[in-house]
Design a protein around this nucleic acid. Structure first.
Lengths: 151, 151
DNA sequence: CTACATTATGCAAAGATTTGCAATTACAAG
DNA sequence: CTTGTAATTGCAAATCTTTGCATAATGTAG
């Protein structure tokens, strides 16, 4: 079973229908790998399925996210991005507000926090979808980045 | 010194210029209170400053966020929302993916997590801007919400 | 108060994302 | 394989958000 087929199977198990559009989008996402934008995936997938509509890509991304196959995040004010969820090594995302760099966040670190929040508020944070904004180590060290804004 | 004046002062101290637009937007935000959308604030502020442009509101919200006067978050797929930062009681936001409810997250809970992440990745999470998605206590208890999607 | 450098605004256009609706299609059941 | 229902798609239009550029305004220094 190919990678794309396995993902389609996961999707079906979540109660979603497996359509040619979704299959091709899933294959495209898996093939490209890394952090993707809607536009990127759209243009790539369109070569194999010319009639594909942008709205479908948006809706599919939403479905894939709901199904837990991909994780989404919005780096800064740029268009949304997403990545295939890594089942071997589940992790969150840390997005640097200054340089836009996206790094991985170990889920173990999240878990303790998750439980404390759950205990205090009853709120269930989604560890896997977790995306946090802030400053990466490099930019945080750079004093110029934010303070006072007085370059 | 009025509330709006104090906020304008904070803005100036961060290196931003204080313009009529910003002043009125700040007053509007402070006056309305709670969780606001760009549209809401735009329409309200426009009554006092008819020439006000929507792009200016977007840019101002961005500046206020940078200056740390407001906190932004995007509940679900709806338009962005924001709220005046509560200096007396700094907190993050918990947004329920199911019902959209926004609740407050005690910053103390975040702090320990923040430090662990900082230690592991050198990444500095912005506690004050922190907005987390997940399921609120009510929706999490509701079994129908997500699992299997086989309602 | 005046002049200056820089930042902010308005406007219009572009880009990103969502939504309503009719036609199509996947999947389950017979 | 045929039938029926509910989910999905494409399309077009509506929303939301960002951006380029010329003009106007702020805050600083003389």
């Amino acid at each position: 079973m190919s990678c794309g087929e396995r993902l389609a199977q996961q999707l079906r198990e979540k109660g979603y229908r497996v359509t040619p559009q979704r299959t091709i989008l899933l294959e495209t996402i898996a093939h490209k790998g890394g952090h993707l934008s809607v536009q990127t995936v759209y243009q790539d997938a369109r070569e194999r399925l010319p009639g594909l509509n942008l709205a479908t890509v948006y809706r599919t991304v939403d479905s894939l996210r709901d199904a837990g196959l991909i994780d989404c995040y919005a780096p800064g004010s740029e268009p949304m991005q997403f990545a295939l969820r890594d089942l071997e090594n589940p992790h969150g995302h840390l997005v640097c507000r200054s340089c836009g760099e996206v790094s991985d966040l170990d889920l173990e670190l999240v878990e303790a926090f998750r439980q404390r929040v759950s205990g205090a508020n009853g709120f269930q944070i989604e560890g896997n979808h977790l995306t946090l904004e802030g400053l990466c180590a490099v930019c945080a060290a750079d004093d110029r980045v934010k303070p006072g804004r007085g370059g």
